[in-house]
């Protein structure tokens, strides 16, 4: 399941990194404490956070997540979108809550890959 497929099927806006969305998603991580995210998110996770400042981009790069998803229609700051573009970070924006996004992405991963994350 690629980022592009998730964005299309779940009707998310692509805020940055549109050219990179063929990246595969390995799992999902939700969190807003950046240190916690850095130490627990896995490579290729789809990371859901309400934080939209520049640090979000830095943590996405350092953690090597597949993409960042901003839930509940929260606006992404212009500077963040620009930085994400230069750092090759994909940011998606969804009207759904983090919980709804988790469920929908889980269902998609499960159907496609027999997803079973420990």
């Amino acid at each position: 399941m690629t980022v592009a497929e998730i964005a299309r099927d779940l009707e998310m806006d692509v805020v940055s990194g549109a050219a990179l969305t063929d990246r595969q998603i390995g799992g999902v991580y939700v969190g807003d404490l950046l240190s916690w995210v850095m130490s627990h998110a896995k490579d290729d996770d789809l990371w859901i956070t309400v934080l939209t400042n520049l640090n979000t981009v830095a943590v996405a790069v350092l953690s090597n997540v597949a993409c960042v998803v901003i839930p509940e229609g929260i606006e992404v700051e212009e500077a963040t979108a620009r930085k994400a573009e230069t750092e090759n970070v994909i940011i998606l924006r969804s009207k759904m809550t983090a919980y709804e996004i988790c469920i929908k992405v889980y269902e998609k991963l499960k159907n496609q890959n027999g997803y079973d994350r420990n």
Binding site: L34, S35, S39, L51, T56, V59
Partner: peptide
């Protein structure tokens, strides 16, 4: 509010 201040900085440094 910027997503820091969880008290995990130094423990993370040690861990990694």
């Amino acid at each position: 509010e910027q997503g820091f201040g969880a008290g995990m900085g130094l423990p993370n440094m040690k861990r990694y």
